[in-house]
Design a protein around this nucleic acid. Sequence first.
DNA 1: CTAACAAATTGGAATGGTTCTAAGTAGCAA
DNA 2: TTGCTACTTAGAACCATTCCAATTTGTTAG
Lengths: 143, 143
Amino acid sequence: MPSVIMNPPDALAQRLADSGLRSTPQREFIYGVLMKKRDHPTADEVYARVRADLPSISLATVYNCLETLVQCGLIRVVNFERGPTRYCPNLSPHAHFHDEQSGTIHDIDLPADLLEKVASILPPGFDAKSVEVTFRGKSQPAA
Amino acid sequence: MPSVIMNPPDALAQRLADSGLRSTPQREFIYGVLMKKRDHPTADEVYARVRADLPSISLATVYNCLETLVQCGLIRVVNFERGPTRYCPNLSPHAHFHDEQSGTIHDIDLPADLLEKVASILPPGFDAKSVEVTFRGKSQPAA
DNA sequence: CTAACAAATTGGAATGGTTCTAAGTAGCAA
DNA sequence: TTGCTACTTAGAACCATTCCAATTTGTTAG
C-alpha cells in the first residue's frame, strides 16, 4: 500500500530523499529546532539550540544543513541589512516586520491579491522570481 | 540678501552645515560620484571611481563619507542578501529589482497609493518607519 | 560480512565586507 | 600662536560565512 499519507513526521526525510539526499541526525534535529520554536533564528542561535541534543555538532554543519533545508524548500532565508542571516520556517507568503528596538522579527500575512498588485508594478521585461516586503520600525510589546 | 535660492550646486554643503558638519573635498567628490552615475555602487566601486579625482583617499573615508551622506538624507543604502551594501541616489519611493544574472539593480517606481496599501497590512501595534520592496529575477537587457 | 564508494560531518583556516583605533591633518576660534 | 574639534588615514580587528582537507557514516554490491 504505497499511498500512505505522509505527514510532517517525516516530511523532511521525504523531501531529502526526493533530492537524492540523506536523512541525518544533524538535519533532523536542525529541522526540529526550526519547527519547534518558529521564530527567526540565526545560524548561531540554531547552533546553540541544537547543541542541547547534539553536543558535538559543528557550526559548519549547521550552515550546511540549513542550506540543505533551504534547497529542499523546507525553510527560507531572511536577511536584514547586513545582519546575520536568519532562517524562517514560515513558507506561506508573508512580509517581515523588523522591530528595531528588540531586534525581533514578526511575520505579517501578505494577501495574495496585494502580492499580485505589487508584482504588477514591474514594467515589461522584468521577470520576478521572488518579491520581498520588509518593514522596519517599532512594534508594541502587545498581546 | 539672505533669501537666495540654493540649488543642487551645493545642496550638499547646505545639508552638511545643517547638521553641523563640514564640507570636505572627500564628501563633495563622493557625493558627485553618486550623482553623476546614478547606479547602485558598492563602497568599493565608489572608492574606485573617486580615486580618479582623489588618488589618496582611503577606503575608510569612503565608508565614513557614505555614512555621512546617508545620515544627511542625501543618499540611501540598499542591501541584497548578504552582498556588499549598495548606495542609492534615488530618494523617491521606489522598489528594487535585482537581476540575478547580471547583478544589476533597477529602480522600479512605486506608486504612493500602492505603498499605502502595502503599509495597511500591518496589524495595529506595528509602527513602520520604512517599507522595502525587493524583487529578484531576470530582466531583459532591453531598451 | 566486507569492500568500495559516495555523501555528510568536522575543525580550523581563509575570506570579504565593514568597523574600529590611534595617529596625523586641517580649519576655525580665542 | 594655542587650542579645539572635525575629519581623514592606514592598518588592525571583527564577524558571519565559506572553504578545505581529513574523518566518519551510510549505502550498495559482491
